[in-house]
Amino acid sequence: MQPRSAGLLWDLATAGKRIQGFIAGKTWGDYDSDLLLRSGVERQLEIAGEAMSVLRNLDPETTERIPNVHKLVGMRNILIHGYAEVNNLTVWRTVTEDLDEVVAAATALLVEAGPPAIS
């Protein structure tokens, strides 16, 4: 694992856990009708997708161990560049169907990497 990879994995895991907290106990109807909730989820997806985009270029070997990377990066690109075309249901499905596996993989990789070296 590249030295910078752990920081990017931490960004991914942290953003994912924030989303999990935001949507805990929420339904599709809650999400669809709550602008603040959607905005928070979308911002954290932007962070997660950017972390994965950078990691994909920096450390492809580590990136291959995280499922749905292409979905996260694609979602980030839509949120950033195609914001007028964001489909709320697609975002909801991404965070409810794909995110748990991504967070688990990123967390496992961080544990595997061990604590950061102090210099």
Rank of each mutant, 00 (worst) to 15 (best):
E64Y: 09
E64A: 15
E64S: 14
E64M: 14
R65C: 10
I66Q: 08
I66A: 14
I66N: 13
P67D: 08
P67H: 08
P67L: 13
P67K: 09
P67C: 11
N68P: 11
N68V: 09
N68M: 09
N68R: 15
N68T: 10
N68E: 11
N68G: 12
V69F: 10
V69T: 15
V69S: 13
H70N: 13
K71Y: 14
K71F: 15
K71V: 15
K71L: 15
L72N: 06
L72V: 08
L72F: 15
V73E: 05
V73P: 03
V73T: 15
G74V: 05
G74D: 12
G74I: 03
G74K: 06
G74H: 08
M75N: 13
M75W: 12
R76A: 11
R76C: 13
R76K: 13
N77S: 06
I78S: 12
L79S: 02
L79N: 04
L79Q: 01
L79P: 02
L79M: 01
L79K: 03
I80Y: 03
I80S: 13
I80A: 11
H81K: 10
H81T: 08
H81I: 07
H81D: 11
H81A: 07
G82T: 02
G82M: 02
G82C: 00
G82H: 00
Y83C: 01
Y83R: 02
Y83Q: 01
Y83K: 02
A84G: 11
A84N: 13
A84C: 10
A84M: 12
A84K: 14
E85I: 05
E85P: 05
E85F: 09
E85D: 15
V86I: 15
V86F: 11
V86M: 12
N87H: 11
N87Q: 12
N88Q: 04
N88E: 06
L89V: 12
L89F: 11
L89E: 14
L89Y: 04
L89H: 10
L89K: 14
T90F: 08
T90Y: 05
T90P: 03
T90G: 06
V91K: 05
W92V: 01
W92R: 01
W92D: 03
W92K: 04
W92A: 03
R93S: 09
R93T: 10
R93H: 11
R93I: 08
T94S: 09
T94V: 10
V95L: 08
V95C: 07
V95P: 06
V95N: 06
V95M: 06
V95I: 14
V95R: 06
T96L: 00
T96I: 01
E97Q: 10
E97S: 06
D98P: 03
D98G: 10
D98M: 07
D98N: 07
D98C: 04
L99K: 02
L99M: 09
L99Q: 02
L99T: 00
D100E: 08
D100W: 04
E101D: 04
E101N: 02
E101H: 00
V102W: 07
V102G: 06
V102Y: 04
V102I: 15
V103S: 00
V103A: 00
V103M: 00
V103P: 00
V103T: 01
V103E: 00
V103C: 02
A104E: 05
A104Y: 00
A104C: 05
A105D: 01
A105V: 01
A105N: 01
A106L: 02
A106K: 01
